[in-house]
């Protein structure tokens, strides 16, 4: 295998961002455009005051050319995130978030922070949320054993971050644990 060890078991964060960019998001177009066919499907037509659903990659592209406003998803606002943060810090388990929330939130805050209400507050909430969840996945290490690990509601970016060493540790544990049935093998 010619790939570096770190790339064998997981994808990189930019790749995850790319995957997340396939999700649809609402925009308010500032230009009109007919329905257009792409490999992933046909999107449009864009008729200015009417909202339209497009993949995120297309929305960011239009946004960067100042040809639309992005409507942030319903979870990307202070009330929702504050509520989740409170729950995250008061419960032992992870609370449910959209699977690719980290990627989507970052894309939107990067290119369309003017379409989001109070982006700085949201950024800091997301950061707190991330840290609270990181502390929990650290707890997961102590529960690690050779056969299974359940961390429900973990999101793609978080899974990706812990994947390389979690699977390696589980592999090591598999080697070290002696199953009763394995007695006398070799």
């Amino acid at each position: 295998m010619a790939l570096p060890i770190s790339l064998r078991s997981s994808v990189t964060p930019p790749e995850l961002e790319l995957i997340a960019s396939e999700q649809l998001i609402e925009i308010i177009p500032l230009i009109s455009m007919d329905k257009t066919a792409f490999i992933s499907g046909a999107y449009g037509p864009l008729r200015p005051p009417a909202k339209c659903r497009l993949p995120i990659w297309m929305a960011t592209n239009l946004k960067l050319k100042k040809k639309c406003h992005i409507v942030p998803p319903e979870w990307l606002n202070i009330d929702f995130l504050q509520d989740r943060l409170t729950r995250e810090t008061s419960q032992p388990e992870f609370c449910a978030m959209p699977f690719r929330f980290a990627e989507v939130a970052k894309i939107i805050l990067d290119v369309a922070s003017d379409d989001v209400e109070n982006p700085d507050k949201i950024r800091s909430l997301l950061k707190d949320l991330r840290e609270a969840r990181q502390a929990k996945s650290r707890e997961g290490i102590t529960k690690l054993d050779h056969s299974e690990l359940t961390l429900p509601n973990l999101c793609s970016m978080e899974i990706n971050e812990i994947r390389p060493f979690f699977i390696r540790s589980m592999g090591v544990l598999t080697q070290l644990v002696r199953e009763p049935s394995a007695a006398g093998d070799i």
Binding site: I5, S6, P13, N160
Partner: peptide, 20 residues
């Protein structure tokens, strides 16, 4: 083995941090 894990965890954390 622990060194290997150390490197894996460090690389992974770095990549994620860089992305953020």
């Amino acid at each position: 083995v622990e060194r290997e894990l150390f490197v894996l965890a460090q690389e992974s954390a770095k990549r994620t941090k860089r992305w953020y």
